[in-house]
């Protein structure tokens, strides 16, 4: 005997509450960023110029597109276009992988230059630049972790769609995974200009 009920709105509301906590989690890093930016404005510009805008820009487009595909997947399942829905999920996962590969190359490049947390090179560049890269690595790292979790969630749900456990009648799991994925996108929307584009 256990408690059975169905309330998709409640399920979604719970997910939104969780997203609020995620935003606050990231905001801790953004507060540190804002304070460091006004403390070391010049150093932040110097450091930001060392990041490759093309890596960041490409990843922005990738994430925005993946947000589109997962949003389309909801409409697809609502219209009972199961095949299309699964394809859109797979596309999203693919874009997530592209994002991570891109990130891998970007970080490899920076690490090869000796720029990584607690490195000698970084210490020689002074406290402002060090602070920028520490924050960049931790924020982007935490974001990358969310990409990984989000992609896993969508994979699980895509399998459930294929198995008919998530249907056009009951798709709140897909909706919630999509919500999580959009959050990943939202964080990047702020992360990108703040780290790659300051001048």
């Amino acid at each position: 005997m256990s408690f059975e009920h169905r309330d998709d709105t409640g399920d979604r509301f719970g997910m939104w509450l969780f997203l609020y906590t995620e935003v606050i989690l990231f905001s801790g890093l953004f507060i540190l960023y804002a304070i460091a930016l006004i403390t070391y404005p010049q150093e932040y510009i110097t450091a930001s110029n060392k990041l490759n805008i093309w890596f960041g820009g490409a990843n922005t487009v990738v994430l925005l597109t993946s947000s589109l595909t997962i949003a389309l997947a909801i409409t697809a399942i609502q219209r009972n276009q199961i095949r299309l829905c699964i394809n859109l999920c797979v596309a999203t996962i693919g874009l997530a992988i592209v994002f991570l590969i891109n990130k891998y190359f970007e970080w490899s490049h920076e690490i090869s230059l000796g720029i990584y947390p607690a490195s000698e090179t970084l210490r020689d560049m002074g406290p402002g630049v060090t602070s920028f890269f520490n924050l960049y690595y931790f924020t982007a790292g935490l974001h990358g972790l969310h990409v990984l979790i989000g992609a896993t969630l969508i994979t699980v749900v895509a399998v459930m769609v294929a198995k008919g456990k998530v249907t056009s009648d009951r798709y709140v799991l897909l909706e919630n995974s999509a919500l999580y994925w959009h959050l990943v996108d939202l964080v990047w929307i702020f992360l990108f200009p703040l780290y790659y584009l300051i001048i």
């Binding site: 947000s67 589109l68 949003a71 999509a178 919500l179 959009h182 996108d185 939202l186 929307i189 702020f190 990108f192 200009p193």
Partner: peptide
């Protein structure tokens, strides 16, 4: 960025 977020929040989400 805020404008973009609003679009994502209100439409995508």
């Amino acid at each position: 960025a805020s404008l973009k977020s609003a679009l994502v929040l209100f439409v995508f989400m």
